[in-house]
Design a protein around this nucleic acid. Structure first.
Lengths: 258, 258
DNA sequence: CGACTGGTTGAGTGGTCTCAAGTCCTGTGG
DNA sequence: CCACAGGACTTGAGACCACTCAACCAGTCG
């Protein structure tokens, strides 16, 4: 039901086994994630009921408070995971790129989603059914260690970010956001420049940085004026990534605002 | 080596098996944590090299950047886990109470500690050796699912807190800290009052809240003037927990206070 | 053409920080 | 017993960063 919220059901859904098998292939052979290391037997278990689906830009994959029906794998495209503050202000907590899994925390803890996932551009996402996934998790030797490690990494990331948000002023947080975007979606160009290959609105950059829209606009304009970044349509090119790294790591109040 | 940093080695260490067996009992039979559900065989594996140790107040259990030698279990006492910002400002990321495990994330991810653990009062802490723990993790059927769930809970906690810190003003963050302290260390008194049974300095409350010392002082004085809390020596009594919950606007899980 | 969305810039406000000057408390040594 | 040092805590004054509010511009879509 979650799947059908944003997209009409695939026109092929009713055609039975042949199409079903087609979905299975999409959800396994084109995937870059951990599941490609599963044994044939485990793959079979996992793929029961799996479905691949296309989403337009700005479509909701799952929503905070909903009960999960399975786990998602981002095959192509980009997705943001955000939480809604009680004043309506969104805070992006994570970015996903192809190969990333989505919604596994809710499945593993048996809770409802505590964040919302929305596509940043048109994306292909695979959905593995909850029972199939949990069954595979139990019989597989690689899956539990993988998720243990992955959760550890997520936790470290979240706690590092916590520190950043508490202690860093807006300027450093926006610089840190650009660094984060380089890591997630960056493509290296000539002479050390990096293209952030994602079309993010100013509001989304603000929501990543934990600042208000106008502040993000002003700081980006300032970065541009200083020739650290440039704008190419809706995309950002980083001219001086070392400067951004320096700013984002510098402690509060030592930065001069020339 | 970490263990011997704060406390001299136990005078009984050299006495061989008998004392060794004594440590084992302390590290298992008096523990409240997940390990009590292990089978005898698994317990045996886990307890190889385990040691119980007493720490005075304000002693470091492990330090950010160090390489872990094992996993810790807090038997009695209280411990804070904090990260150091690059301006020297500390940020407390978690509080531990008896039964909690410490340092498992570093072990599970194979990284160095990325936070420091320090006792808030004199505590008894058990240390299980890394190799013993990892071996037990592999042979046990309950341990991996337990840690998966636990990491999920930690991650949820960290992301919820991230949102709080970004979006909430100082007043709400300090109120949220008091709610957090009630959940961690609260003891119910008559007429719905709650004693926060921990001697925290104003600085520590500030570090929990992500505000500066003076701001924490001012806001606590304000809460006291409004008769929401009172001070009993270095401990805090919450007179009106509903008011604090309202102010902090937190989605606290309203746990029962012992 | 107007409505609308996304972006930009200006002005003013206020919350939180810094700095500084105290006060209270506790332990120590004379 | 007092004197005193040093730490924790408290309070005041001022600065400043980031927020809100508001106006405006540039596209785009109907």
């Amino acid at each position: 039901m979650i799947l059908s919220r944003n997209q009409p059901a695939s026109p092929c859904d009713f055609k039975g086994f042949f199409v079903y098998s087609f979905f299975r292939r999409e959800c396994m052979e084109e995937t870059k994630n951990i599941f490609r290391f599963l044994s044939p037997h485990e793959k079979t278990a996992l793929l029961v009921g799996s479905q691949s689906k296309n989403y337009d830009r700005a479509k909701t994959v799952f929503r905070e408070g909903e009960t999960p029906t399975g786990i998602f794998s981002l095959q192509t495209g980009k997705v943001k995971i955000f939480k809604m503050g009680n004043d309506g202000q969104q805070q992006i907590v994570r970015l996903a790129k192809p190969g990333d899994l989505l919604g596994y925390r809710a499945i593993l803890s048996g809770e409802d989603y505590n964040a919302t996932a929305e596509t940043l551009e048109s994306s292909t996402i695979c959905h593995y059914r909850k029972d199939s996934f949990l069954k595979t998790l139990n019989i597989s030797a690689v899956l539990k260690p993988h998720f243990l490690e992955h959760l550890c990494a997520d936790l470290r990331f979240a706690e590092d970010r916590l520190l950043d948000f508490v202690q860093k002023p807006a300027r450093e947080r926006v610089a840190a956001t650009l660094v984060l975007l380089m890591e997630a979606y960056g493509k290296s160009l000539k002479n050390g420049q990096v293209l952030i290959d994602a079309s993010l609105s100013r509001r989304e950059i603000a929501e990543l940085s934990g600042v208000v829209l106008e502040t993000a606009v002003r700081l980006l304009a300032d970065f541009k004026e200083k020739k650290w970044v440039g704008f190419e349509g809706k995309k950002i090119i980083v001219f001086d990534k070392f400067k951004l790294l320096e700013i984002s790591d510098t402690s509060a109040h030592l930065v001069s605002w020339r």
